[in-house]
């Protein structure tokens, strides 16, 4: 397992939010947040192409 250092205040806020949202542990909450962020950041070239088609159709890029 890898350890990550985060700001104490951020940790306290995140811990409270995780408990309120029903996560079984803080680790589960952090993993879930990272998974969601990665899904957004790791979009495929096909996805980028689709967005470009949309923007081009609307006349905002060439």
């Amino acid at each position: 397992m890898t350890k990550v250092k985060i700001d104490n205040k951020l940790y306290e806020r995140a811990k409270k939010a995780a408990e309120a949202a029903g996560y079984s542990s803080f680790e589960e909450f952090v993993s879930s947040v990272i998974e969601k962020e990665l899904a957004l950041l790791e979009a495929s070239p096909d996805d980028d192409k689709a967005v470009s088609e949309q923007l081009r159709g609307l006349g905002y890029i060439e």
């Binding site: 899904a39 957004l40 979009a43 996805d47 967005v51 949309q54 159709g57």
Partner: peptide, 20 residues
């Protein structure tokens, strides 16, 4: 004109990813 041939949900997901 035509845009991306995708569902709204998929396009929403892609735009959110791009904005992120």
């Amino acid at each position: 004109k035509t845009g991306a041939n995708l569902s709204d949900d998929k396009l929403a997901e892609l735009f959110k990813g791009q904005l992120n």
